[in-house]
Design a protein around this nucleic acid. Structure first.
Length: 231
DNA sequence: TTGGTCAATGAGCTCT
DNA sequence: AGAGCTCATTGACCAA
């Protein structure tokens, strides 16, 4: 027996369009499944097509050893596609992820396989592609989660700091009287973005010394921060 | 022996 | 109703 084409062609063609996470949509496929499997494949045995389809021979890929007898109800030998068969299937999969009946028939004839086998190959190939895609999406979302968690921690810290500031009494001293100023007297200089004590005329302002504890005035809302590029 | 791969199956769904 | 799909699963086969 010649075992060809180890490890199927893993050159899965993957495109990730994650932003909408438009993953598949699928058919909703509710749980389904159930048992499946079963060994009741007497009448649908791929390696031994039903009489009706025998008009053409289908030398099953690399399976040419019909251990006749085979005995009981065990599964037939597993078909392994030859390199050439896999190559051709991959090629047509690249062009189209689904086949219409005509294409299927033509491809099956060309590959000396049964149309059903071509169909199954395409189904499995689509499933593999989707699986790979899902894995990639998963990785991507994990990375997103990581950076968003970090951003979240940072913002939480900032909120805590600001909350603490709000609780503390203002200790900014007036440059004129040297008395503690009420928070309402503090504003944000729109040009240099520093906390200031506006003069009565509004013409001049004094920057508060660095490190001074202060309370922001309600009249000077926080500038929205540029969100750090998470994803 | 075990774990991965992949052809094949059956159930259940959607669409025409 | 039935063709064709997805999904979950099985089992043969292979390499480590």
């Amino acid at each position: 027996m010649e075992e060809l084409g180890r490890r199927g062609p893993s050159g899965l063609e993957l495109t990730m369009a994650v932003h909408g996470l438009s993953s598949s949509s699928g058919s909703g496929g509710g749980g389904g499944g159930g048992g499946g499997g079963g060994c009741l494949m007497r009448d649908l045995d791929m390696n031994f097509p039903p009489a009706g389809e025998m008009e053409e021979e289908y030398p099953m890929g690399s399976v040419e050893d019909e251990d006749e007898g085979g005995g009981g109800g065990s599964r037939p030998k597993k078909l392994r596609l030859s390199k050439e068969q896999s190559r051709l299937l991959e090629e047509s999969f690249r062009q189209n992820h689904t086949l219409n009946p005509k294409q299927k028939e033509a491809l099956a004839t060309r590959l000396k396989l049964r149309p059903r086998q071509v169909e199954v190959w395409f189904q499995n190939r689509r499933a593999r592609t989707k699986l790979k895609q899902t894995e990639m999406e998963c990785e991507y979302l994990k990375r997103c989660f990581g950076s968003l968690s970090e951003e979240n921690r940072r913002l939480q810290r900032e909120v805590e700091e600001l909350r603490a500031l709000r609780m503390a009494p203002p200790t900014v001293l007036s440059p004129h009287t040297r008395e503690p100023m009420p928070a309402s007297a503090l504003t944000m200089c729109p040009r240099c973005e520093r906390v200031t004590t506006a003069s009565a005329s509004g013409q001049r302002h004094h920057h508060v010394r660095p490190g001074a504890v202060f309370q922001r005035s309600p009249a000077s809302p926080f500038q929205p921060r540029q969100p750090s590029a998470a994803c």
